[in-house]
Amino acid sequence: MSAPATPADPASTPTAGVRRGRGTTRVQRAREVVDSYLALTKTRIIEQLLVVTVPAMFLAQRGVPSVWLILATLVGGAMAAASAHALNCVVDADIDAKMKRTSRRPLAKGVVPPRNALIFGLVLGAVSSAWLALTTNWLAAALSAAAIAFYVLVYTLLLKRRTAQNIVWGGAAGCMPVVIGWAAVTGTVGWPALVMFGVIFFWTPPHFWALAMRYRDDYAAAGVPMLPVVARPDQVSVRIVGYAVVMALWTLLLLPVTSWIYAAVAVLGGGWFVFKSVRMHVAVKAGRDVTPMKLFHLSNIYLCVLFAAIAVDAAVGLPTFGWPF
């Protein structure tokens, strides 16, 4: 993004014009630097992570937590996610440069020095943990630090380039925001937080494998063994169906602490997502052209709607189903 051009001033002298041009250049360069460092953090993914954090906090409170606590948790969570993503960019700079989808990332283009990006990521991680410890509690801070370490050390460094199951286990880091949000409110990790963790855990493979089906050639060129690279399309699509079914059933484990509002969304939304997954698998088996990105985008909508239902359910405060025994 560049700064808008400054209109010419007829009364200005040539010298003044040169100074104004230099000033504009400095502004443009500063903005480019800011944009580059923001790109390291993968802001779109952060938005999605924060979307699931707030509903987890509502459910933990069984109502609406204080605005300050919500803001403090979101700021800390955003910094933690930004730290993990920046460090991920440092480690993956070589493969990002080989993939069309990621070739415009700052390190892949060489616009941010790796050393600077490393320091940026580490500082963000330290600040996020300190912030959460001071504004929420030490458990939330510790869980945040653990999520960063898991994402960088386990997923990025250990699993991503070695196994087709990389996203299955590595995706656990993306499940942590709900646990952190719960801990920020209660100071503990209750079983509903673990259920929400599981929802995102089982949602992650269908979500990312649909994306990887679309960008299979990219991952193959970079030498990343994502499942669509090492398995036939029908093998990938049937696993997507399997995870979708498990995810839809897993969402029902929250029924004891929710009401009919969440139940309706979980049943209808889960059924719809399974139906779309099966439909794609049937098309793949038949050899027809498919558009896996449709399922990818649907998975985003599904997760947002499901967690919005959790938040609304908790805020409204209707009687819950409770335990059936």
Rank of each mutant, 00 (worst) to 15 (best):
Gly77His: 05
Leu50Ile: 15
Leu69Pro: 08
Gly110Ala: 12
Ile70Tyr: 01
Arg105Cys: 09
Met79Leu: 15
Lys100Val: 15
Ala81Trp: 02
Arg101Met: 07
Val75Asp: 02
Gln48Pro: 00
Val91Ser: 09
Ala97Lys: 10
Gln61Lys: 15
Met79Thr: 04
Gln61Met: 09
Phe58Leu: 06
Met99Phe: 10
Leu50Pro: 00
Ala80Phe: 01
Ile70Ala: 01
Ala56Trp: 03
Leu107Asn: 06
Val67Glu: 08
Ala84Lys: 00
Val51Cys: 11
Val67Leu: 15
Val75Ser: 07
Leu74Phe: 09
Leu87Ile: 03
Gly63Phe: 13
His85Leu: 02
Leu107Tyr: 11
Gln61Pro: 02
Gly63Tyr: 07
Gln61Thr: 14
Leu49Phe: 01
Pro65Ile: 15
Leu69Arg: 05
Val111Lys: 02
Lys100Gly: 11
Ala82Gly: 15
Val75Ala: 12
Arg105Lys: 13
Ser83Lys: 03
Pro65Ala: 13
Leu69Asp: 11
Leu49Ala: 08
Ala86Glu: 03
Met57Cys: 09
Leu69Ile: 02
Gly110Glu: 02
Ala56Val: 07
Ile70Met: 12
Ser83Met: 06
Val64Tyr: 07
Arg104Gly: 14
Ile95Val: 15
Lys98Gly: 04
Ile95Asp: 10
Arg62Phe: 09
Ala78Lys: 04
Ala108Leu: 08
Ile70Leu: 11
Ser103Ile: 03
Gly77Cys: 04
Arg105Tyr: 09
Pro65Glu: 12
Ala72Tyr: 13
Ala80Ile: 13
Val67Asn: 01
Ser83Thr: 09
Asp96Asn: 02
Leu87Cys: 05
Gly63Thr: 05
Ala72Trp: 08
Arg101Trp: 11
Thr102Ile: 13
Leu107Glu: 11
Val91Gln: 10
Asp94Glu: 15
Trp68Lys: 05
Gln61Leu: 08
Gly76Met: 10
Arg101Val: 14
Val64Ile: 14
Trp68Gly: 15
Thr102Gln: 07
Asn88Ser: 12
Arg62Leu: 06
Pro106Ile: 05
Leu71Lys: 00
Ala86Val: 00
Pro65Val: 10
Lys98Thr: 13
Arg104Phe: 01
Ala86Pro: 08
Thr102Asp: 07
Ala97Trp: 02
Ala56Ile: 05
Leu49Gly: 12
Arg105Asp: 01
Val51Ala: 15
Leu107Ile: 04
Ala80Thr: 13
Val51Asn: 11
Thr53Ala: 13
Arg105Gly: 11
Val67His: 11
His85Phe: 00
Ala108Glu: 05
Ser66Trp: 07
Val90Glu: 00
Ile95Gln: 09
Ala72Asp: 12
Ala93Asn: 06
Val64Gly: 01
Arg62Ile: 01
Leu107His: 08
Asp92Gly: 01
Ala82Met: 10
Gly63Gln: 06
Leu74Gln: 00
Val91Trp: 13
Ala78His: 08
Leu59Tyr: 14
Ala81Pro: 05
Leu50His: 06
Val90Trp: 03
Gly110Lys: 14
Ala93Leu: 10
Asp96Pro: 05
Met57Gln: 07
Met57Ile: 04
Cys89Leu: 10
Ile95Cys: 06
Asp94Tyr: 03
Leu59Gly: 12
Val67Thr: 10
Val90Leu: 03
Ser66Asp: 15
Lys98Gln: 15
Phe58Asn: 04
Leu87His: 06
Gly77Thr: 06
Leu74Gly: 09
Ala81Val: 03
Leu74Arg: 05
Thr102Gly: 07
Met99Tyr: 08
Ala84Phe: 02
Ala86Lys: 02
Thr53Pro: 10
Gly77Pro: 03
Trp68Ser: 15
Lys109Trp: 08
Arg105His: 08
